[in-house]
Write a protein that binds this DNA or RNA. Structure first.
Lengths: 343, 343
DNA sequence: TGAGGTCAGGAAAACCTTTTCCTTGCAACA
DNA sequence: TGTTGCAAGGAAAAGGTTTTCCTGACCTCA
């Protein structure tokens, strides 16, 4: 073990020495500041390169008042939804030289506080909170407006907060309008538990889209259950078995339900999409592409949501004050389960 | 916008002033160092609390030579596999007060270099590289042993590097032994493309387990294809349709293949597990629990892998030198697809 | 009375950069 | 010749914290 330890890094003092200038001058040369002869500037830059000098951003941050880091606090052990968001966010911020601290506090307020303390100590320039959207969460306890906070795919119980969400209502409209527009008249909605705000919003979208198409709501065609394939199969059983009149389309609350429903239909010998069209929600390829036939689905554009969060965060760090709920439009991806012409 | 900007944070100087001591003394009081009267110590601590003081960890890091941060560089846009690993790692490191910078460089060397530069500037204490394991990746270019690097779920083409991987060979043995142990004689292996090292390792495990049980390898029972449900269905078709002798068990390279296979068997009226047992790989609940019947599967213990990575990284930061390939055992989760007695 | 010891806390260097303000040298101008 | 003006670069403060070393004050023992 001796002293073959990891060696020390070159500092600007080493660079200055090697270039034969003062450290102030070296700094100016490297940052393209001050009044220097081009020759001097180049000499410093060469010295820096030769030494593999890389400025210590801790020291820089200490001086400037920006750390060029933000925190991402994820409740809901960064699942399938948080991932694309965070990935897009990271990509967006990296372009501005901002790095992200990743923290996970699975609905444990104590761990959340601990993480928050740590992040505050690291002087992050902003904070992004994400997590499952069951209901409004208590706002993060950052001391007295000390930094911008954005909630993404998560809603804070605080009118001053900025929350970025997918437009569940509009997404549902989109899905159902696609079905009404292709001639479906008896559209059922099989979805998750009503404890999710998204469920009630999508339900509203469903109803409004039916109304807009002049279609009646049919008794028993709105079904709440779990977010699982098993529930999709079960719902199909209760909607179809022994019924004289059956749906000609299913709008499902997520792709797992949609897939379960599709499987159940196929096993009953009901043709999809000929007899019944199916549209899911989430556009999760693992489900939509593996289903037979592949599923049409509403896409929440989570990557766009993450990018938007990045932009908003940058604006707020620059001083802008933003608040309220902003909803990003969903889009519809049509596949064979609702349109036989798709390949 | 005026001056309702985000206010300044209290520094240790404010704390010292309020407690009527020098800043050195304040520091000692807060860090439980030096020789101080208990009364003084408590006065400082009280002052700190009243001001909501939180030490600036940038300044601390500047002084100590540890930043208490590590970088996570993920090629493979942190997919399903990287997630549990990173989550467990984060949890493990958080206990030691170490935060992680999350970077994503989807197989783009330029972005990787850019991220690396940024991380080096931030003086991370260590680096963890993760990503899809197709083949050995070129080692990360950290200048001259400047910090510990660990590859997890990824293998570097460098004998000096430490690589942490699941024991694919042992995992396959485990799965196949379970099948031979429950009386299966004709076990096929349906798996992914041979470009993955994991595929060849698992294949070896499969063969050795057969040999250990005194079973012959059967011509055509090892099948390479894609990692998809569709391939699982297709493989079953070619193994069963029009064949006089068929397998009595399928060991699949991942859960998607296993699920596709199970679906195909059911649709042919082949009873699972009565006539054919199925075992998957990955233990991905989205697949294993939704399949009918639920799938037995080999679990790579990715969370444990992440924890292990955290421990190793901490050791290496403390000065220990580690290298070589370390493989973590897999475990088997038995469900109905291979054992009718399971619920 | 003085030498030495302990206790409590202060002063200042160190960590690495950036930036503001100064100094020096030299040319141009009256 | 003396005054300006400018170019080039140095000195030092600042940013927040930790740590080493130092100073007094008080006590003990000879």
């Amino acid at each position: 073990m001796d002293d073959d330890r990891y060696p020390l890094r070159a500092t600007i003092r080493d660079v200055a020495e090697r270039a034969g200038v003062s450290i102030g001058t070296a700094s100016k040369a490297l940052n393209d500041n001050g009044r220097l002869k081009t020759e001097t500037r180049e000499r410093v830059i060469a010295a820096a390169r030769e030494l593999g000098f890389r400025p210590n951003s801790l020291a820089q941050s200490l001086h400037r008042t920006r750390s060029m880091t933000v925190g991402v606090l994820s409740t809901d052990s960064f699942g399938r939804f948080a991932f694309p968001i965070i990935e897009a966010l990271e990509e967006r911020l990296a372009k501005h030289g901002i790095a992200i601290f990743m923290c996970n506090a699975t609905d444990d307020p104590a761990r959340e506080k601990q993480h928050l303390d740590q992040l505050l100590g690291k002087r992050i320039d902003g904070l992004l909170v994400t997590g499952r959207r069951l209901d409004k969460r208590p706002p993060v306890a950052v001391p007295g407006q000390s930094m911008p906070v954005i909630y993404v795919f998560s809603q804070a119980d605080d009118p001053e907060a900025l929350c970025l969400l997918p437009d569940d209502y509009g997404g549902a409209m989109l899905g159902v309008q696609h079905l009404t527009g292709t001639g479906r008249k008896r559209i059922a909605h099989i979805t998750g538990p009503e404890t999710f705000e998204a469920v009630t919003l999508r339900h509203r979208g469903y109803r409004d889209a039916l109304a807009a198409a002049g279609l009646p709501e049919i008794e028993g065609y709105y079904r709440n259950g779990k977010w699982s394939e098993a529930w999709g199969r079960e719902a199909v059983a209760s909607l179809f078995d022994g019924k004289a009149e059956v749906p000609d389309a299913l709008f499902c609350g997520n792709d797992q339900i949609a897939r379960g429903a599709t499987d159940a239909l196929r096993e009953r010998g009901v043709a999809v999409p000929a007899a019944v069209a199916v549209v899911g929600f989430d556009n999760w390829d693992v489900m939509t592409l593996a289903a037979r036939p592949p599923l049409s689905s509403v896409d929440m554009n989570l990557r766009e949501l993450g990018q938007l969060a990045g932009e908003r965060l940058i604006s707020m760090i620059a001083g802008e004050r933003l608040k309220g709920v902003e909803r990003l439009p969903c889009s519809l991806v049509v596949r064979q389960s609702s349109d036989p012409k798709q390949s």
